[in-house]
Design a binder for these strands. Structure first.
Length: 425
RNA sequence: GGAGGAGUGGCAGAGCUGGUUGAAUGCACUAGUCUUGAAAACUAGCGUGCGUGAAAGCGUACCGGGGGUUCGAAUCCCUCCUCCUCCGCCA
């Protein structure tokens, strides 16, 4: 959520930003609506405050008169207060409807893209920020896709997942589950090395948390919802982990704050179909290690670039071909100012799979969750960032496909001490 | 799940027979005095949002959340949440 004073002071910048997100001239009217509503809010606030001030002074006088035993004088003042209260009640109602409308508009306005974000309508116009320069895995004609490999080596049972739960809930078994666990530990250890504190958060969150990171209202349909208890299953560790700092005022010396957490992630993925959802390409439950940074606004961009390096290091150690995309305005998530996606090449499917998304939300989330820091005499919103490091399901898909041979599936060296086997036969 | 108790500023802890109480006091913290330096002592400062103002300031709201009673509520009432104690049940 953007700050209204920010919108007022940077109206042109905001409009340019929204244009990058393909807002039509008509849609841009929302900015003027916001300012008008905010004017009204201020106006009402001023009037209301003065009425309340009158009520307060009169009430004190009434108290004094009662003590002196001047009941009648007190009673006349009471009737005066009554009429003032009538007015202030009206204003109070006006105030709350104005605030609600304003809030609703503000929630609908996405973050302003970073200057480096390219124009573009959809994911097809994302900019390749860093191309893969190494060699590509060479597979024979008879190379199998990961879902076939998973079956051949008894690593993942999709049918059992369907039986137990439904489509998109894979069941890992044997070396498949060991590989999964190895990757989680590998990623967590790497994050620990990089200075992140490990968190094991709750997997269900309340509405305030979902709102804080921006899942509500924009992505509400994406989350599983436990109606009886009014709780949401997390779509990513980002939600519970970032909300650790909801309603917190940090000291400047607290920066940077670094958290990492492994959690399963639950996504409804309504509307997805076809080859996109085959095997592990898109599932309702997957494992992910997330890294979260809370940083001073002046340093957040550098931090983002550092997070990119961290993710790159992981992919290099896993010996996977990857490329980095800078998302264009049309593909950028509403909460994000700048996002880099990492894609890994899945050699048998002959396609790139997204395995990580690293974003700087700047103050968009911190404004929602009132995450601030002391800056001299005032408080300022901190910057929040996060990234997958990494999302497991698709990593597994690429590892299986790229490392297959007639001998079996080779485990990358960095992972062998975790799996305690070097090949899947 | 049943019965009872409690939620106050960074922490501890008054106030809770309604009235200059945004809230005593202590600790912590910040600045100053003293000291060669430190400690101790002393002095002062020390919440957040909103409105207004160039600023100082002023106004307003906030004592777990929401609602109500009242001229006036941290103090009374309702409701929700959380924590503690006891009982039951289960890991």
């Amino acid at each position: 959520m953007l700050l209204v004073p920010f919108i007022r002071e940077n109206k042109n910048l905001v409009i340019e930003g929204l244009k990058k997100r393909n807002y039509s001239d008509n849609d841009l009217g929302v900015i003027d609506d916001v300012i008008a509503l905010d004017d009204k809010r201020k106006n009402t606030q001023t009037k209301l405050d003065s009425l309340l001030a009158q009520t307060n002074t009169l009430s004190k006088q009434i108290g004094g008169l009662y003590k002196e035993g001047k009941r009648e004088e007190a009673d006349t003042l009471k009737t005066e207060v009554a009429s003032i209260k009538e007015q202030s009640k009206k204003l109070q109602e006006e105030m709350s409807t104005t605030k609600e409308k304003l809030e609703e508009l503000l929630l609908g306005i996405p973050n302003i893209p970073h200057p480096s974000v390219p124009f573009g309508k959809s994911d097809e116009e994302n900019e390749v920020f860093q191309e893969w320069s190494g060699s590509m895995p060479e597979l024979g004609e008879d190379a199998l896709a990961h879902w076939d490999l998973a079956k051949k080596y008894n690593l993942i049972d999709f049918e059992l997942g369907v039986k137990i739960t439904g489509a998109g809930f894979p069941l890992f078994r044997g070396k498949g589950s060991k590989l999964q666990r190895a990757l989680i530990n590998f990623f967590l250890d790497e994050a620990h090395e990089a200075g992140y504190e490990e968190i094991i958060p709750p997997l269900l969150v309340n509405e305030a948390s979902a709102r804080g990171t921006g899942q509500i209202p924009d992505k509400e349909g994406q989350m599983y919802y436990a109606e009886k208890d009014d709780l949401y299953l997390i779509p990513t560790a980002e939600v519970p982990v970032t909300n650790i700092l909801r309603d917190v005022i940090l000291d400047e010396g607290d920066f940077p704050i670094q958290y990492t957490g492994y959690t399963p992630c639950f996504r409804r993925e309504a509307g997805a179909y076809g080859k996109d959802v085959r095997g592990l390409n898109r599932v309702h439950q997957f494992d992910k290690v997330e890294i979260v940074h809370v940083q001073h606004p002046d340093k957040s961009h550098d931090t983002l670039m550092g997070m990119l390096k961290h993710v790159e290091g992981l992919l290099q150690k896993l010996e996977l071909p990857y490329r980095i995309l800078r998302l264009c305005g049309g593909d950028l998530g509403a909460a994000s100012a700048l996002t880099f996606d990492f894609e890994v090449y899945s050699a048998a499917q002959k396609r790139w799979l997204e395995v990580s998304s690293v974003s700087n939300f700047e103050t968009y989330q911190s404004n929602r969750m009132k995450l601030r820091f002391r800056d001299g005499k005032t408080t300022r919103l901190a910057h929040t960032l996060n990234g997958s490091a990494l999302a497991l399901a698709r990593i597994v898909a690429a590892l299986l496909e790229n490392n297959q041979s007639t001998e079996g599936i080779r485990i990358p060296k960095a992972l062998q001490s975790y799996t305690r086997f070097d090949i899947i036969k």
